[in-house]
Design a binder for these strands. Structure first.
Lengths: 346, 346
DNA sequence: CTGTTAGCGCATTCAT
DNA sequence: ATGAATGCGCTAACAG
C-alpha cells in the first residue's frame, strides 16, 4: 500500500503526498489554506490527511525563518494556589484565542528554577514570556539575554527591568479596605502581612498606612506583624495580637493565608468560650469561600486573577502582533479590586 | 566582530562555533556532555555560549530522528479549580524531574476543544499525553490516532479506551463518609451530587448506596438530588431537602460545589433564626478550608490532587522510559482518600 | 579528538 | 496551478 506510515510513527507531508498522489508542496499549500490549489486536489489531500491521521509537525514548521513557534512560556510560583491557577487559566485562554499554546513551568518561588525554565523556554523558541517573578537576581531577564522575546511580569515588578507589568491595585485595595474599618469606628486595626512576596506586601502595607494617616491615626508598631508565611504562623501572629493588653478591635489581613490563619485562631477562642463580640472584625485582601459563614464579620478585598492573566497575555500579544509593538515603551497596568462590605451576622 | 548575532535573533550553533573558533559539531558535543572534546575547547565553547547568550534550539533538535521533544501535552477541564490546579502542579513537578516540560491546555469541558488540543499537541511532537477527559466522543483518542504517543487519563475513564487511568477511590471514600454518618446514628441521609462529571458522580453515589445497604437502610429517592452543577443550584437543592416533611438529619455532599451550596443555605437559615441543633450534619467529598469554622459539624473526604497528578505523570513516564513499557497492559491506579472526623463544635 | 556530510519536516523561492 | 530545489538548526554517521 502506498503512503502507509510505519506503526508508531506520525506520518509526514511526504507520506500524505504519496498517499494523495501529489507533491509535498500541494499538501503544504492545502494545509496552509488552499490558495492556488485546485479544489479536487485539496479534497484528495484532506482525505489522505484524515486516513493517515496526519498532524503537521509544528516544530519543523517553526524552524523555517519567519515562522513563529506558537508557544508562550509561562512560569509561575505556585500553580496549586487558586490565585495563580486562575491567573494561568486567564493567560491560557487569551493565548489560545490566537491559536497559540502555553508551555508551563512552576518555579515554587525558586530563582534557580526560574532561570532554568526561562532558558528552556527560549530554547523552545517561545514567542513570548509571562512570568510571576520569584524575587531573585534578574540578570537572566534583561532584554538582551532574551533575544527580542517579549516579557511580561505579573504580580510584582523587578527593579531595573523595563518591561510590561500587570499588577493588582494593591495600594488602593488595602486603602479602601482599611478605610471601611475606620468608617465602622475602629481605631486600633491590626495588620497581618507577609514578607515573602515583598513587593505585594509593601504595596498593601502602604495602602493600610495611607488610610490611617488620612484619618489622623498614628500607626501602632505593636499592631503590625508581617512575618507570616503560612496559615500556622498567621494563627500564631493573631494570637499575639489578641493577647495584647490593648488588643486591636479589627484586623486587616494582607492575604488569603493570613486571613485563614486569623480565622482559625478566632474560631479556637470562640470554642474555648470567648464571646463573639470580643473578637475582632476582619478585612481580608483576597477573597475566600464562605466568608459569610464566619463567626465574625469578614469583608473581602476581592479581585479577579483570571482577568489579570488575560491582561498579561493581552500585553504580550499586542507586542507580538506587529514589530512596531516590540519597541514601544514598557506599560504598567493596575487591575481594579473590589471591596465588598461585610455580611452582617444574625 | 566574528560570530556576533543579529540583534533580535537568538544565536545558533554556527555562530557559537565561529565565536569559539571551532566547528558546530564541537559545540554540539560540548553541550551534549563533552564526551570526546578536549577540556580547553569545551571551555572556549562554554565561554562563547555565555557571551552570546546561546540556547540550544530544542525544536530543531527534536527534528532529528530518535530525538524526543521533551514535551508532555496536558489537557484539563478547569485550571482555575484548585483541584485541577494542584493536579496540573503534580504533573508538572514529576515531568520536570525528568527535564521535560508540559504544554498545557484548558478544555473547559468542551469535547471539541479537547480534540483540537490533542491534535495540536501531537503536531508539537509531544512524547505523551495526560488528559482529564471532557466526556464527549473519544475516537480521536484511540491509540492508532495517536501514533504511539502514550496517553494517561485522570479522574475518569472512557468506555472502550484501553489506556492507563488514575482515579480517586471515589467509591471507598463515599462509602466510608456515609458510614461515618450512620455510625453517628443518622438514618435519613440526604445525597447531593452532580451529573456533569457523570463518571465520578456515579462512583460516589455507588459508595453511598453501598453503605446504606450494608446497614440495611433502604435508600429514599426523595433524599437524593443529583442535578446540581454549581453552588447556587446546590443551595436550592439543600433548601428542598430541608423543607421536606421528614427532612434528612445529615447530608452527604459528593463534591466541593455542593458542600459550599449546602452550607450557604444552612447559614441562611441560621441567620433567619433556625436552631443549629435542627440543622443537618454534613460530610463533604472534597476538602475545603475552614471546615472547622462552619456552624454545623462538617467532616471531609479528603484527597491529594497533586499526588494524583504525580501518579499520572509516573504512569506516563514509565511508558516513556523503555520501549517495553509502551506495550504493557493498561494500568488502573486508585489513589486513597482520607475520611476526617468532624471537628466538634463548642 | 575534531570536522565534514547529510537529512530530519516543512514552506519559501523559483521554475514550469 | 503545481513541482523541484533549498535551507532553517541540529546531530548521527562517517572521515580524518
Amino acid at each position: 500500500m502506498v503512503g502507509v506510515s510505519e506503526p508508531g510513527k506520525l506520518p509526514t507531508v511526504k507520506e500524505v503526498a504519496q498517499h494523495a498522489g501529489v507533491s509535498p508542496m500541494t499538501v503544504s499549500r492545502t494545509l496552509a489554506g488552499g490558495a492556488n490549489v485546485r479544489p479536487e486536489l485539496q479534497e484528495k489531500v484532506l482525505k489522505a490527511v484524515r486516513e493517515l491521521g496526519y498532524y503537521r509537525n509544528e516544530n519543523a514548521r517553526s524552524l523555517r525563518p519567519g515562522q513563529a513557534s506558537g508557544l508562550i512560556g509561562v512560569a509561575i510560583t505556585n500553580l496549586g494556589n487558586p490565585y495563580y491557577g486562575n491567573f494561568a487559566l486567564g493567560v491560557e485562554e487569551a493565548v489560545a484565542e490566537t491559536g497559540r499554546r502555553i508551555v508551563l513551568g512552576n518555579t515554587g518561588g525558586d530563582p534557580a528554577r526560574e532561570r532554568q525554565l526561562v532558558a528552556d523556554f527560549l530554547g523552545r523558541q517561545v514567542e513570548g514570556l509571562v512570568l510571576v517573578p520569584s524575587g531573585g537576581p534578574s540578570d537572566h531577564l534583561q532584554p538582551e539575554r532574551l533575544g527580542d522575546v517579549p516579557l511580561v511580569l505579573a504580580s510584582r515588578r523587578i527593579q531595573g527591568l523595563d518591561v510590561d507589568v500587570v499588577l493588582l491595585d494593591d495600594v488602593g485595595g488595602a486603602y479602601r479596605g482599611t478605610i471601611a474599618l475606620l468608617d465602622a469606628g475602629h481605631t486600633r486595626i491590626g495588620y497581618l502581612g507577609n514578607v515573602s512576596s515583598a513587593f505585594t506586601g509593601a504595596r498593601r502595607y502602604e495602602g493600610y498606612l495611607r488610610a490611617l494617616q488620612e484619618r489622623g491615626i498614628r500607626p501602632d508598631p505593636a499592631l503590625v506583624l508581617r512575618e507570616q508565611q503560612d496559615g500556622g504562623s498567621a494563627s500564631e501572629a493573631t494570637r499575639r495580637l489578641l493577647d495584647l493588653d490593648e488588643p486591636p478591635t479589627a484586623l486587616f489581613s494582607a492575604n488569603n493565608r493570613n486571613s485563614i490563619g486569623a480565622l482559625r485562631e478566632i474560631g479556637r477562642r470562640l470554642r474555648s468560650g470567648a464571646r463573639a463580640a470580643d473578637m475582632p472584625s476582619l478585612v481580608s485582601f483576597d477573597d475566600f469561600e464562605l466568608a459569610e459563614l464566619m463567626p465574625v464579620p469578614v469583608s473581602v478585598v476581592d479581585h479577579d486573577p483570571r482577568q489579570l492573566g488575560r491582561e498579561a497575555a493581552r500585553l504580550l500579544l499586542t507586542r507580538l502582533a506587529d514589530r512596531a509593538g516590540r519597541v514601544g515603551p514598557a506599560r504598567l497596568v493596575e487591575m481594579p479590586v473590589n471591596v465588598a462590605p461585610p455580611v452582617p451576622l444574625a
